[in-house]
């Protein structure tokens, strides 16, 4: 059976390009989602925290 070389080249090139495109997009999405979550979590921490009361047992310099 004759090999369809144009199909071979198509599978070869679309395969390599396809994998890279999908993985790069996934990388961008992962970076984006982790940054958004970091931002939201930091915001939550900032809002939730209040100035800590001075501990009566904390060592003091004087």
């Amino acid at each position: 059976m004759e090999t369809d070389w144009s199909k071979v080249m198509e599978v070869f090139t679309t395969g390599i390009i396809g994998v890279f495109v999908v993985m790069i997009l996934l990388q961008i999405l992962t970076q984006l989602s982790t940054r958004v979550i970091d931002f939201v979590e930091n915001l939550g921490k900032g809002e939730g925290s209040s100035p800590e009361p001075k501990s009566p047992t904390a060592p003091s310099k004087d």
Partner: peptide
């Protein structure tokens, strides 16, 4: 997350083998 690119890079070898297997007479 940039290690995702390494996961993609290793797959390039897979397509090289695809090409080699066709050269050795296997169908697609």
């Amino acid at each position: 997350p940039k290690t995702l690119l390494l996961g993609a890079g290793a797959q390039a070898g897979l397509y090289v083998t695809f090409f080699a297997a066709v050269l050795f007479g296997f169908d697609l």
